[in-house]
Design a protein around this nucleic acid. Sequence first.
RNA 1: GGAGAGGUGGCCGAGUGGUUUAAGGCGAUGGUCUUGAAAACCAUUGUACGGUUCUCCGUACCGCAGGUUCGAAUCCUGUCCUCUCCGCCA
Length: 470
Amino acid sequence: MLDIALIRNKTDWVKEQIAKLHDEGALERIDSIVALDAQRRETRTRVETAQAARNKLNRAMGKLRGNKTMPAEEKAYRARLAAAALGGEDYDRASRLMDGAEPAVNEEPADFGAAFDELIGQLRKMGDGIEKGFDQIDSIEAELQEHMLWLPNLPHSSVPVAESEEDNIPGPMQGTLREFDFEPKPHWELGPALDIIDFERGVKVAGSRYYTLKGWGARLQRALISFFLDMARENGYREVYVPYIVHSDMLVGAGQFPKFQDTVFGIADEDKYLLPTAEVAITNLHRDEIFEEADLPRQYVAHSPCFRSEKTSAGRDVRGIKRVHQFEKVEMFKFTTPETSYDELETITAQAEAICAALEIPYRRLEIVTGDLGFSATKKYDIEMWSPGCEEWLEVSSCSNTESFQARRAMLRYYPSGTRKTRYLHTLNGSGLATPRVMIAIMENYQRADGSIEIPAALRSYLGGAEIID
RNA sequence: GGAGAGGUGGCCGAGUGGUUUAAGGCGAUGGUCUUGAAAACCAUUGUACGGUUCUCCGUACCGCAGGUUCGAAUCCUGUCCUCUCCGCCA
């Protein structure tokens, strides 16, 4: 979520930033937001002033009713005078009459019951108006909030401005391309031939875009997960195990909802959803909490399966296991101060790259342009591995700084050293890494002429020292 | 899944409809005292929004959401969570 004060004070600048993202729907919301914000503040001031008067009157009422030394007769005529003052909207005088601050002269005898009925009637009338005012505020704020939740994060000034993913800027390839003395095969041929990927039986059990790993396939994936977690732990991340099912609020907090509701799987009859990424659970781990600056940065790593329904991408990448509804990912996550978040983005990206390097697979870093930045990030790098079989670059990691975008949605704050004034912290996330795409890259880069696959040296200790899958 | 008991500030804990601040304690912070520390004493104490501007003022928040009432931490309804016991399971 963006800072409403920023939208209020620099409206045109915010519009320019959103224009770079090519999110026309969001752009249209800005004027509504500015209008609702003004309306909201004006209404709130008016209603709260009235409420302050009413609170004072109710307290004075208690004082009048509960006064044990005042004769009933005096109470009655004070009540009647106060009711008259309320009729003239002189709240201060009414309050003074009721709590005894203003002397009252008994002009004529008043009936106790009738006087209090009259007074209560005045107070009720006042209360009804205030209730209506609060209802009005609620509906304005709900509408404002809905608009706010649909606004994407704004790009950092260093992000190149361009149309789409076609324009993302690749960095130089790292590592060395393998020279094959045979035609390298794609993983959808290698996997079934070795009986380590079984497409048909995955489809039988769960439908299209589901798959089964068998034998060395399943073991290789498990080894990769352990290897990834160990790499992250050595880099100072605390390993956590999180729920794979979360409340819808958590998806709002991390930025998936409301806009991307159709990309996640829901639990029947419950307001809960399967994780599309462990990032959702980790982001919300410290929801509604306030850190001390000394506690930052806080770094976590978690492995989780990721479930994505992605109805929008039907028809793309249908072959193989590149784009599937269920995959495994190890996610690195940082809670940082605003001062350090961009340095930390470089760090987390370098850490993801180091994993690629350790596996000795050619990779490159992609600098993401504004048109492909996505909803939550201010700046993003993707890491891609080269797959010689399907002859394409495979995205195996995505590293983002969301600044305070998620922090505002999930109420993640900290006290800067020496102050008691809260401030939103910054959150960053980076895959480290995701499989089965890394498995694709391993299979295709490490394949041998006879169809067997060499196991990368870094993984052998996780597989009982084995060197070859055949 | 069934039954019962609970949910109050950073923590413990009082509070069965009002008589201007959620009592009291712990912790934390600041101060006095002290050579220093401890102890003692004094003061302060959360979050959000709004209005002011360098300081205040106001509103809301007693798990959450509704309701009753002139007025709700307190009464009513729903819901979530925790604990205990039973059942089931890994």
